[in-house]
């Protein structure tokens, strides 16, 4: 079960790193979060600790339901819902993904835990999504993928206290709501959500 879930997480991350349509990015993110919350529930069932269940329920509620709804609501306002000129295009983004996954696995050779490595991979791939796109909303998805990696990393490695975990989830929720509002206003002001145009504000 855990193996299938970690495969789903990695597959969704690799596919997301080369997608250019924002709708599909959001859908991939919600599938990934669903898999992560199922990982939390499985670990909780195996160890019998309560805080896994709480993290799983929070992930399920916030990342699988609320954030995709907010994000797809702001996508619906856009005129162009795909990336037109990527900074790193799909082909090179996939190659970069492959190289960074291999490098991550080489560096983390000593950790005998699948989810630590998968968490690091998600952080790196979130970074690739973050720097390769121009639209504000797909940059937000990249940041959220990085955060997913953090969750995966900490449920398997460190024992963070529950307070910090809840604060992180809350912060992500606030970020996505603020981003949703901001994307709406950027779109209203500039007729696009391309972040290049933000430098026009200087004048």
């Amino acid at each position: 079960m855990l193996e299938i879930l970690s495969a789903v997480i990695l597959i969704s991350a690799i596919i997301m790193s080369s997608l250019r349509r924002v709708n599909l990015l959001i859908r991939g993110f919600s599938v990934q979060s669903l898999a992560i919350s199922l990982v939390c529930f499985t670990l909780g069932f195996k160890t019998g600790e309560v805080h896994y269940y709480i993290i799983g329920a929070l992930t399920l509620l916030v990342k699988t339901l609320i954030i995709p709804i907010v994000a797809s609501k702001s996508v619906r306002e856009l005129k162009i819902n795909r990336e037109m000129k990527l900074i790193i295009d799909g082909y090179w983004s996939s190659i970069l993904t492959a190289l960074s996954i291999a490098t991550t696995y080489v560096f983390l050779d000593n950790f005998n835990n699948d989810f630590v490595k998968a968490g690091f991979v998600l952080m790196v791939l979130g970074g690739i999504i973050l720097i390769g796109r121009k639209k504000a909303i797909s940059q937000m998805i990249g940041f959220l993928v990085m955060e997913n990696g953090l969750v995966l990393f900490e449920i398997s490695m460190i024992k963070m206290t529950l307070i910090i975990e809840i604060l992180i989830i809350l912060e992500v929720l606030m970020l996505s709501v603020i981003m949703g509002v901001m994307v709406f206003y950027i779109n209203k002001a500039f007729d696009t959500v391309n972040t290049d145009y933000l430098s026009n504000i200087k004048e």
Partner: peptide, 17 residues
């Protein structure tokens, strides 16, 4: 290229585990 990326990921998961 996505398929290439999957293959590299699979190899590194198999080899460095």
């Amino acid at each position: 290229a996505a398929s290439f990326s999957f293959a590299i990921a699979a190899i590194s998961m198999m080899y460095f585990s």
